[in-house]
Design a protein around this nucleic acid. Structure first.
Lengths: 210, 210
DNA sequence: ACTAGATGTAAACGTTTGCTGACTTAGCCA
DNA sequence: TGGCTAAGTCAGCAAACGTTTACATCTAGT
C-alpha cells in the first residue's frame, strides 16, 4: 500500500534546525526510523516489539501506525533506508577501494552505525513485500560490486562474476552480524585497521582486479 | 505381539517402515528436533511458534514442554546438534579440504540440510543461555579452522590467524543464509561445483596454506 | 484571539503466544 | 488378564502482542 501519513508539513521555515519544534512530525518519524533500524538489526523483526521501538524513540506507540501504517511498514522503510546507504557505498566507490569501503561499513559499530544496516539486510520479517525489497537491494548492490570488477549484464560467462560478487557481499554481511549481533570475539573487538587487510585479501580473491 | 527393543534408535527421518511404534519417546523427540531446526533456521526464533513446530512434527504441542522443558530448551538442543555437526566438519577435515567441506555444507539445501544448521548459528533467541552456546560453538569451530592452518592458542601474533578464521566462518554462514533464507539469485541456485571454486579462493586468501 | 487541523496521548480491543494441569490411552510385565 | 507407568491429548490460562479508538493539546493562519 502507498498509505501515506498526513504529509509532515516541513516545507515551512525550511533550513531552520536551531529552532526545534516541540511537535515535529518529520523529526518524530526520523526518531522512530532510527530506533527501529537498531532494534530490527540487533534483535530481528519478530523479537522486536513496537513498544520497544516507541520507548527507544521516546514517542507514543500509536504514532508508528500513524506514520508507517504498521510494524511491517516501518520495517520496509528501514530496509529502504539501509538499501540507499549500501547502494551509495558500493556505487560511488572506485573499484580498488571497495575493500576499504566495506571495512568502514563493517567496522562502524556505533549505535547508529552503518554496520546495523548491513545486519538488517538478512533479517526476515515474514512479510513478502519486505523480502522483495531486501532481495532487490542485495541484487542491485551485488551487481554494482560486480560491475566495478568488469561484469556486464547478459555477457556470456559473466554469471560467475556476479556469483562471486554476491559471495563477497555475503561475507561482508556475515562478518557484520557476527561482530554486532553475535558479538564473537576477537572478531567483535577488531578495529577497522584489523579488518581492512583480511577484507582486501578476501575481496581480491573473489573478484580479481582486472 | 512381536517383541521389540524398547528404544529402536531410529535414524531415518522420512522413511516410514511398516513397524513404527505408535508411542516412541525417542522418535518423537527426534521429530520435534528436526522440525524445530528447520523452522528456527528459516524463520528465526521469535517468529517460530511452538504450535508450528508441533504441527510440522505431527505431534502434540505439550510434548515440547515435556521433552525440552520450554521453547528455549528446544532451541538450545537444536543449537547443540548443529554445533556437533559443524565441529565434526571443521574438526576431522584435512586442512586442504576445508573449502570443499564448507562448500558441501553450504550447497546442501535439502529440507533437513546441513545448510539450515549453519543458518541456525546466527539466529538469536533473546535467551542469554542460547547465545552463550552459540558463541561457544562458533569459537570452537573457528579455533579448529584456524588450527588447521597453523594457529596455536596463546602464540603471539596468532590472533590475526584466528580473526581470519572467524571471517572465513562468517563468510560461509553469510553465503548459507543468502542462499537458503534470503534466496538471492543466482547464488541460491548455484550448485556445489559452482561454489567450491570461489570458496577455495576465499578460504585460501584468508588462511594461506602454510 | 480564535479556530481548524495537525500532532500526541491513554486505554483498551481482539488475537496469539508459551505454557500447564488434569485427563486418556497405549505398551509392557507379573 | 489386570494393572501400572510411560506417552500422548485436550482445554484453557495469563501475559504480551499489534492495532485502533476516543480524547487532549499544540501550532499555524487569519
Amino acid at each position: 500500500m502507498t498509505a501515506e501519513p498526513p504529509v509532515p508539513a516541513t516545507g515551512d521555515t525550511a533550513g531552520e534546525p536551531a529552532q526545534r519544534r516541540r511537535r515535529d512530525a518529520a523529526e518524530t518519524r526520523q526518531l522512530l526510523l532510527d530506533a527501529a533500524r537498531q532494534r530490527f538489526a540487533r534483535d530481528g523483526y519478530a523479537a522486536t516489539t513496537v513498544r520497544d521501538i516507541a520507548d527507544d524513540a521516546g514517542v507514543n506507540v500509536a504514532l508508528i501506525s500513524r506514520y508507517f501504517t504498521s510494524k511491517e511498514g516501518l520495517f520496509e522503510a528501514c530496509l529502504r533506508a539501509a538499501g540507499d546507504e549500501l547502494r551509495r557505498t558500493t556505487g560511488q566507490t572506485p573499484a580498488d577501494r571497495v575493500p576499504e569501503a566495506i571495512a568502514r561499513h563493517i567496522a562502524d559499530l556505533g549505535a547508529a552505525g552503518l554496520s546495523s544496516q548491513l545486519s538488517l539486510l538478512l533479517r526476515s520479517s515474514g512479510d513478502a513485500g519486505a523480502d522483495e525489497i531486501r532481495r532487490g537491494v542485495l541484487v542491485r548492490s551485488s551487481e554494482q560490486l560486480a560491475a566495478a570488477r568488469g561484469w556486464r549484464p547478459g555477457e556470456p560467462g559473466s554469471e560467475q562474476l556476479l556469483l562471486r560478487a554476491q559471495m563477497a557481499l555475503a561475507a561482508g554481511i556475515g562478518v557484520a552480524v557476527l561482530r554486532s549481533s553475535i558479538q564473537l570475539q576477537p572478531l567483535s573487538s577488531a578495529t577497522e585497521q584489523d579488518l581492512v587487510g583480511p577484507l582486501r585479501d578476501l575481496v581480491d580473491a573473489l573478484l580479481p582486479p582486472h
